[in-house]
Amino acid sequence: MRAAYASSSKPDAPLSALTVDDRLDPDPPDGWVTVDVRASSLNHHEIWSLRGVGLPADRLPMILGCDAAGVDPEGNEVVLHSVVPDPKDPRGYSLLSERHPGTLAERVAVPAGNLVAKPAGMSFLDAACVPTAWLTAYHMLVTRGRVADADAVLVQGAGGGVSTAAVVLAVALGKRVYATSREQWKRDRVAELGATAVAPGARLPERVNMVVESVGAPTFEHSMKSARPGARIVVCGATGGHLATVDLRRVFGMQLDILGSSMGTAEELAELLTLMAERDLRPVIDSTYGFSAVADAFARLHSGEVFGKVAIDHLH
């Protein structure tokens, strides 16, 4: 079967570690099933894997990809939850493409419990954009950030998959949403999604109950200064740097909660897909590539000029 995989690790030139070629079909163990992939999408996780982060040399070659939608052996249209229980990992889990082959292939094997029904009205391409970025945003907002108790939310670093998902979801849930970006064109785009766009570090019209934080060091001080007493700052990444300075006086003085967050459960994925179907929410897709052009899709993601998700149509 055709697949896109990491054939080596190249910390300074990750795209040169990407190979697109034939690989063996999956041989699923007991309790796993093989899904015919109809669509997938890219995450920065794939770029980090090509750099060798979380993917040591003894696991290469490794088929990349966490996100997919497709058809199971019974003909059901499904979305894949990419979190696999893993007692060897300190997190207690690993993602597809870390220890088990990923979704950027014609077929992928997953535990049967990782299959979630695709809403009938949702395209395979839209569904394939949900399992990592949108699920991460949903888990941050609903589970960790208790957004139901909030009326105002700040999303740092709008433009990426998680941040755009957080904006769309928070707006759909009726919250006042503020979003930052260094680039004016991204601020213009995020305003079209219903948020109030602000420059990084700018003072907000009000303090917020919750912050979606994925940038890290460059924005964390602004996140704390923008928070109301008792607010939750939910952190899912640190794309701009992981060594942020934290003024502990503000943490205890304002009684702030700083919460880590990563991915979400299969049950939350089902809830999210239902919400999106009921509210007619569609993922923000930056661009779509046929599988024959998957290398171009990686180049697009790596360019840093992406707004939303890069999707892959496996039928073309």
Rank of each mutant, 00 (worst) to 15 (best):
S292R: 15
E206I: 10
D280L: 13
L248R: 11
D296W: 05
A165S: 14
V177T: 06
A238G: 02
F252C: 08
V168S: 14
A231S: 13
G194A: 04
E268I: 01
R282T: 13
G253Y: 06
L193N: 05
L248C: 11
E271T: 05
M276S: 07
R189E: 06
E213N: 05
R187W: 10
H242T: 08
G201R: 08
A172I: 02
L173F: 04
D257Y: 09
P229H: 11
P218M: 07
S223W: 12
W185K: 03
V190Y: 08
Y178P: 03
A295G: 06
I258Q: 07
Y178M: 12
S226N: 09
L193V: 05
T196S: 14
G264D: 00
F298T: 02
G237P: 00
I285Y: 04
E213W: 07
F252G: 02
F220K: 12
V153K: 12
V208G: 00
T265R: 13
P229F: 12
V198Q: 06
V171G: 03
L169W: 09
F291P: 02
A295T: 12
M276E: 00
L193C: 02
R232D: 09
W185I: 08
M276V: 06
P205T: 10
S262M: 15
A231Y: 11
L243Q: 15
A299V: 01
S226T: 09
V198D: 02
A266T: 14
R203V: 15
H242E: 15
E268H: 06
S226C: 10
R176A: 12
R207F: 01
L281T: 01
A158G: 15
P200Q: 11
A195N: 07
S163Q: 09
T219L: 11
A170C: 03
T219F: 10
P229W: 14
E268V: 00
P229R: 15
A297C: 01
A238R: 06
V294H: 01
V162D: 00
L193E: 10
G216P: 00
V177Y: 11
A197M: 02
P205S: 09
V167T: 12
L256W: 05
T288K: 11
L275D: 01
A293P: 05
L193S: 04
R176S: 13
V234H: 10
G157S: 04
T288Y: 04
T180N: 07
I285A: 09
L269T: 00
M210T: 06
F252L: 13
Y289K: 03
R232T: 12
T245F: 09
G194C: 09
L204K: 13
R176K: 15
V208N: 07
T265E: 01
G157Y: 08
M254E: 14
V251Y: 08
V284L: 07
L273M: 08
V235S: 11
G160C: 06
S292N: 14
L269W: 01
A191E: 15
K175A: 06
G264I: 04
D247M: 12
G264E: 00
R207W: 03
F298Q: 07
A297I: 08
E221P: 05
Y178D: 03
Y178C: 11
E221C: 03
V251C: 13
I233V: 13
A199R: 14
A191Y: 09
D257N: 14
T180K: 04
V171D: 01
L256D: 01
G194Y: 10
G260N: 06
A179W: 08
L243N: 14
G161K: 13
K225P: 00
K225C: 04
V177L: 11
G174S: 09
R249T: 09
L248Y: 14
S214I: 15
N209W: 03
